[in-house]
Design a protein around this nucleic acid. Structure first.
Lengths: 172, 172
DNA sequence: GGTCGATAGTTTAAGCTTAAAATGATTTTG
DNA sequence: CAAAATCATTTTAAGCTTAAACTATCGACC
């Protein structure tokens, strides 16, 4: 089980990189998770900016709405995006100013607001999404598919552990 | 290789969660990486704030300096923290205002500035670090150690792939 | 020695993010 | 039914982050 990678070229790198492993496995795992995500996220942000003059939070918000033709409550939106309510306000304002999204106050409960894509917002997002999917495929392209599947399952375990030990709420 | 997790309770969850897998393995992996890191990072930030009234970037900067008794050039600091130079300026200003860090202009090259911990900064960081290490161990505690090792190696592969395909620079 | 280009760091403007306070609307309850 | 509690969203203040413009210094070349 622990020799899935035995003899692979990367093993050596790891031995060197992490040779001074005095334990602290958890800490090293956390730092590597963080740096991996930072690396990918910076590249994705860079491409969104350079090619589409947009940002990852705006892209993410559009992505959430694209899957919900009838729109989403702002609270549900913030839950899915794992950010606070206050955060949604500003990102949504900017998207609305661009005409990509509309806010709509609920008729039954006037405290509630829904956001949904305009046709122009939907078209815009589809364009972004096509490129985005290609970028991700490209960036992690060298990783063996079986390893990607393994990672997917292992990360689910990590998330479950964190959820169990964090006094917080959930998200995908 | 692919049956490391066979029969485990989480497998079912994964089958359900990701059952509609029409492909897009890479995209799902990226989203899971991102949400895992967001989850952990939010919990760590929350604890840093609640227990020590500090932030993750400030903690990270102190951590970098703690390993370099002679201090670090600001540029090297920003490279290691994977942020821009401009970013360092502000975080450092706040830490300096608290007396935890000092700036020192190089004698040989007056363009260069070094940052290093004050004794008070070092003591403060040691206190933070002890707690932080415990939090991380707790949060990912339920994950099998062999799985953590596997993750560590797999993430190295992911990073290598991303580096190869991103037109950018490096960091740990 | 003076100009030119490169380099290190700071400033600026814009956007993201949060927690806490505020606003407005609904529901509960005395 | 009116006061109190609750709920959804926005506002505010502080901090983080970036790219681009700027400042200051250094090194090279003439």
């Amino acid at each position: 089980m622990q020799d899935r990678l035995r003899k692979s070229p990367v093993d050596l790198e790891i031995v060197i990189d992490e040779g001074a492993a005095d334990g602290k496995l958890e800490l090293r795992l956390w730092l590597r998770l963080l740096s991996t995500v930072t690396l990918i996220s910076q590249e994705v942000r860079r491409r969104l900016r350079d090619e589409f003059a947009t940002t990852l939070p705006q892209f993410d918000l559009l992505a959430q709405l694209d899957r919900e033709p009838k729109g989403l409550r702002l609270g549900e939106l913030s839950r899915r995006m794992m950010v606070t309510n206050g955060n949604i306000t500003g990102v949504l304002d900017r998207l609305q100013a661009e005409g990509l999204v509309v806010r709509e106050v609920s008729a039954e409960d006037r405290r509630v607001a829904y956001a949904r894509l305009t046709p122009s917002g939907r078209a815009r997002f589809r364009r972004y999404a096509r490129a985005h999917e290609g970028w991700i495929r490209e960036l992690v392209g060298d990783v063996d598919p079986a390893m990607k599947s393994a990672l997917l399952a292992e990360l689910a375990r990590v998330k479950a552990s964190v959820r169990r030990h964090a006094a917080s709420e959930d998200a995908s």
